[in-house]
């Protein structure tokens, strides 16, 4: 149990990931699917960012002479790029939903499949 408590950040990230996955798989509304995808992305970002944190650390700005360790700069870079990618995918997905709604009059995956 302490094994898990020490890694509470990871456990929370996993729970968040599964919530997102559930929305992606079980929801029929396309917007909700996009929200699910975004929740999963956030979970992965949390996982990567917390992995790169140092206990009692400071941000990687090497100006003052601190004795505390720095947080890992590479994890932060990865997540920064990841966020930009996530935003881009979301923008494209939303524009597709807009067009699907204009053409089919619905954004429910079930109705789309049935009405084809």
């Amino acid at each position: 149990m302490t094994m898990l408590l020490d890694r509470a950040d990871y456990v929370l990230a996993i729970i968040l990931f599964l919530i997102g996955l559930y929305a992606l798989v079980a929801k029929s509304n396309l917007i909700k699917k996009i929200i699910g995808l975004n929740i999963m992305e956030t979970a992965v970002f949390i996982f990567i960012i917390t992995g790169g944190l140092a206990r009692d650390g400071s941000p990687p700005l090497v100006t003052q002479d601190t004795t505390s360790p720095y947080h890992d700069p590479v994890s932060q870079t990865i997540v920064l790029v990841g966020i930009v990618v996530a935003v881009s995918v979301t923008a494209l997905a939303l524009s597709l939903v807009t067009r699907i709604h204009a053409e089919h009059g619905t954004i429910e995956a079930d109705e789309l499949r049935g009405g084809r």
């Binding site: 094994m3 898990l4 020490d6 890694r7 950040d9 990871y10 456990v11 996993i14 990931f17 917390t50 992995g51 790169g52 944190l53 140092a54 206990r55 650390g57 990687p60 090497v62 360790p69 720095y70 890992d72 700069p73 590479v74």
Partner: peptide, 28 residues
């Protein structure tokens, strides 16, 4: 599956994370 893999990782923030001694250390 995910939880069983995660417990084998070092706890977040612990100094024995392998990456602390490689590329990012060089950067810092």
């Amino acid at each position: 599956m995910l939880l069983s893999a995660v417990v084998e990782l070092p706890a977040p923030g612990s100094p024995e994370m392998p990456f602390r001694s490689h590329v990012s250390q060089h950067y810092l």
